[in-house]
Simulated assay, not measured.
Amino acid sequence: MNHTSHSADEYDAITDAAAHWCLRLQAEDCTTAERQAFEQWLAADPLHAQEYQAMLDIWQTADHLPRSATPGNVINLPRRRQSAWRHYASAAAIALVALPVGAWVGWEQGWLPNHYQYLESGDAISHVVLSDGSQVELNLGTELRFTNYKDQRRVTLVKGEAFFKVRHDSLHPFVVHAAQGQTRVTGTQFNVWKYEDQVKVTLLEGSVLVSSDANDSDGGYRLGPGMQASYQAGDYEPRLSQTYAHDTSLAWRNGKLILDNLSLAQALPQINRYLEQPLLLADENTGSIRISGIYDTKQIKRLVSNLPKVLPVYLTRNKDGSMLLNRISPPPARG
């Protein structure tokens, strides 16, 4: 089957979702609503069913690994099988629960993790301690997955924003994947913001390596405290900058969104992060209007409805239901 219509990032997201559903459907507390949501997800794209079946294949393969596996008789799978196991490794959480011996083989080979966590913050900021002892703070509407491998700790930031305090382990790097890039650390404090295919990394303490290409596993650009790196999916390299003394990137940890004299084109990705449906710009002229202010992250819908009261704009609705910001043209000058 040809999947060229999916980007690498979309393909990985589908694989992660398939692993999540494998895990949830086996859980005792899986609800009827979740099972209905799974059926809808399964029917949404033929690739969903294919990826889910691949997860089940991993379980079945692990079930047939020798129960007496020891360090002296680790199985060497063919190269193609190794690649498949690594690609679908998020499903290992299931195998680890049900098949400890088979999972041990995968752990020793570096294909499978020994721990998997799925985190979702909903409409409240969430604080979580990961299985490795690292701490993560999730902004509203944030979703991420954590898997612990023998050679690295891996986070996939599906959407939203998270602040990390990583437990130091120089032999076990902590890697955050967002869009098509990654941030690699061994122990530090940093923030990662993601909206659609845009990513911004802000470093507070320590150092990190940021790459806009996740395949660049050992390279990247090193940030020091007070630096930021921004990129979009497909960028050759990230854009680096120095934060200023009153940078507002982490205001969300206090429930605030601070817009400091930004154009609407710059502000909308930050605003849309908190909306179920994005607010759109009618044209570049509208996008050039500047906005400032401090807003409650739980009241961003109110901000949108109030924009015509504070800016020379009006709101219209597209046929698909999305809201459109339009600039009010000034009256013609009197001759």
Rank of each mutant, 00 (worst) to 15 (best):
F146Y: 15
L112K: 02
G293Y: 01
N191I: 01
S249T: 12
D12E: 14
L307Q: 02
L257T: 03
Q26G: 08
M55E: 01
I14C: 03
K256V: 04
V97E: 15
L275G: 06
S7K: 05
Q277E: 12
I291H: 03
T186A: 10
P308C: 11
G220A: 07
E196K: 13
I300F: 07
H246E: 14
S288C: 08
L144S: 01
M323H: 03
G206Q: 08
Q53N: 15
P332C: 06
A162E: 00
R317A: 07
H127C: 01
V176Q: 02
L144W: 03
V199A: 01
V304P: 05
L279S: 11
D9S: 09
A8K: 14
D12N: 10
A265E: 14
A245R: 15
P71E: 12
K165Q: 08
A49L: 10
G110C: 13
Q60K: 15
Q189S: 14
L262W: 06
N285S: 15
P330L: 14
Y116T: 06
D151C: 12
R253T: 12
Q40L: 13
D63C: 12
E196Y: 11
Q109S: 08
I75S: 09
A214H: 10
R167I: 03
V310D: 01
L324D: 02
Y314A: 06
S68P: 00
E205A: 10
S170R: 09
I291C: 03
V313I: 14
H168E: 13
L250G: 01
